[in-house]
Simulated assay, not measured.
Amino acid sequence: MRVKFKKTYKFAIKTSLYITLFITLLMGVFLYSFYTVNWLLIVGFSLVCYVFSFIVVQFRVERFIYKRVKKIYDDLTLLESTNLTRGPINTDMGTLTQEIDKFARDKKLEIETLKVRDQYRKEFFGNVSHELKTPLFTVQGYILTLLDGAMNDEKIRKKYLERASKGVERLVYIVNDLDMITKLEIGDLRLKIETFDIVEMVKNVFDMFEMRANKKKITLTFDTDYPKPILVNADKERIQQVLINLIVNSIKYGREKGTTEISIENLIKNKVIVRITDNGIGIGKAHLPRLFERFYRVDKSGSRTEGGSGLGLSIVKHIIEAHDEKIYVESEYGVGSEFSFTLEKAK
């Protein structure tokens, strides 16, 4: 495809003017010294000199210099710079310099982005490997012990099989979470939007985890009484999963004799915001920007002992964003945390 040039005449106009002024001045001095000065002749000569100089400078210099400018554009085009091939090429050197500078900045940003993605990819595969390896080795260890003769002891056999079963359950949990988050990220998970009472759903989730909370003497409560239903439009099953993940996290990292409190407030005319607040150990500010990343753990040493796949908060974020809603987190280490998300209110 032939490249079209957007010509500029600024250089030729100025250069021709300088040449014409110099030659006219030289001619005027010459005529003044040896002949009678003829102003009409000088003006005519100046015009002819200017036109001739302009033609020579514009077309000869353009041929010499601007073809090299075209080669620079062609070289940049080979580097797949879409910004430089959308319109006609500007042969002004200042504009070219600006575009090359912009090209260099864009490429630098692209390289830095690729480096970040590559690092994220390495971390992701490392985390997947670690998360799967731990329960796999656990199951393998118990089975090998049984095969080595421990299965002849009925008590040990039952105990080890139960432990191996828990390891398999964790593997299934991790694989299911990975499958869900993959579907959420590629947009392959269809939401079934329906109208339901969010207050009733929170009560059901409280009932599900009442015994777990009682073990740490954590109180699950609302901030106030909600005598009337609060109806929202969303995927009921997915929002229940969001509440489960957030409440389980609150219990998991909550303090003994602590509190997990739910509040449901009107945000704007057609929105409500659900807040899950606790007075647990809290999260340091340095961790907040990465909190919703897959497999990211605040407490890398102890959190795995609590179970889970490390994907809970990432799934929560993707489910909320799939509803075109927002999720927020506020936390202070040693004080507690608050997770909140918006939902569309039913009319």
Rank of each mutant, 00 (worst) to 15 (best):
G282W: 08
K285F: 05
Y18P: 02
V175D: 04
E169W: 01
V172N: 09
E330R: 10
I239V: 14
I276M: 08
V56R: 01
L114I: 12
V199R: 04
K4H: 07
E306V: 03
Q241C: 00
L25N: 13
K326I: 03
K159N: 07
D223T: 11
S303P: 05
T36K: 15
L132A: 01
L114F: 09
D106F: 08
I264Q: 02
L184A: 03
S331R: 02
V57K: 03
Y226C: 07
N279V: 05
V242G: 01
Q119W: 11
V128A: 09
T134E: 10
K4Q: 09
G310H: 08
A164Q: 04
V202Y: 08
R170W: 07
R297M: 12
R304D: 10
Q119R: 15
Y160W: 06
K285G: 04
I244S: 01
G310I: 06
T182Q: 11
V139W: 00
D235I: 00
F30V: 13
E162Q: 12
A346F: 13
L191W: 02
D188P: 01
G310E: 08
F222V: 10
Q140R: 01
V29R: 09
V248T: 07
H287F: 12
T82C: 02
G141S: 13
S46F: 00
S340C: 06
N233G: 01
I268Y: 14
D299W: 06
R275I: 01
